[in-house]
Design a protein around this nucleic acid. Structure first.
Lengths: 159, 159
DNA sequence: CCGTCGTTGCAGTCATGACTGCAACGACGG
DNA sequence: CCGTCGTTGCAGTCATGACTGCAACGACGG
């Protein structure tokens, strides 16, 4: 109940490994994986720390990376001092949306570069201008993509 | 000519910093930034190493991360033993496409998780099933997005 | 054949950050 | 008021990987 089976542990590690390649600490990834399969689906930090065999302090910092606007949300129950964590209904698409939105930061960098080359011949600015256009294209198209997702599937998040 | 101006160096570092956050080594990011603005646009490894003040060996390994199917390509000129590097005309969208395609790896992980929960009640599988659907959605939509980009803009890459 | 170039491997340095374990704190239900 | 919980800060360990500098090599134009 509070400990993962071998198969579940293997899955948890796969998830962690995947997100580690994207810069997330290993423990954060394991929390994410565990919250996807654990039973019950809402667990207190203490339960998670025990299930994953990690110290409470590192769990606390690991959760902080997942919870403000991320794929994990916090639940409080009246008359219960414990805090519970669970995967947020729409948190995953929010996370991906935010990751893709990172591209606009790079769009701004390319525009800085174009300002630096302000007086250079057009042919020298071409490379940067091309990349800038690509990011502007994605920036204009991706929100519509996620909107379409919300419409088809994301409408019915459980309370 | 072979050394960046202060403004160019600042731009190069911005690019490097951005890609460093995505797991790319600092030097690789600086090479990428430099190749976006340098003059001439094609430079030999020796020239780049001098412009960026890095050792040739680390430059060589840094370039390897950018060049096989990445945003940088290698050019050889007949009667010239030097190798030249430049940003590939369509390399940038290829790079992003590949990055987004990474999602299918995670889709496979979610399917592994669903197999692990094969005998669990449907309500417990819900969380994973939702994430799985989201990745399947993106996997089906993103290729069309890049295709549209190729059609509108990517048609005329310089030889 | 000589000299330069790009690559690769290796030893070694250095910075970073993930993680643990402990202590201290505020919150809060009993 | 007591006890547990979650959080935060801190010191300390450990692994990783980025980078340098050197040596060795093959390729190749002169």
């Amino acid at each position: 109940m509070s400990a993962p089976t071998d198969d579940e542990a293997a899955f948890v590690d796969e998830v962690a490994e995947f997100f580690a390649r994207e810069g997330l600490p290993l423990i954060s990834g394991r929390v994410l994986g565990w919250l996807l399969v654990c039973d019950p689906p809402e667990q207190s930090p203490a339960q998670i720390a025990e299930a994953l065999k990690v110290s409470r302090s590192s769990l606390s910092t690991a959760v902080r990376l997942l919870t403000p606007g991320g794929p994990v949300e916090t639940v409080r129950r009246p008359g219960d001092r414990n805090v519970y964590l669970r995967v947020a209904a729409d948190g995953w698409s929010r996370m991906l949306e935010r990751r893709y939105a990172q591209g606009s930061a790079f769009r701004r960098i390319t525009e800085h570069g174009l300002r630096v080359l302000q007086d250079a011949p057009a042919e020298r600015r071409e490379r940067l201008a091309y990349v800038n256009e690509l990011y502007r294209f994605l920036e204009s198209e991706l929100p519509a993509l996620f909107l379409r997702w919300q419409e088809t599937r994301g409408k019915d998040p459980a309370p």
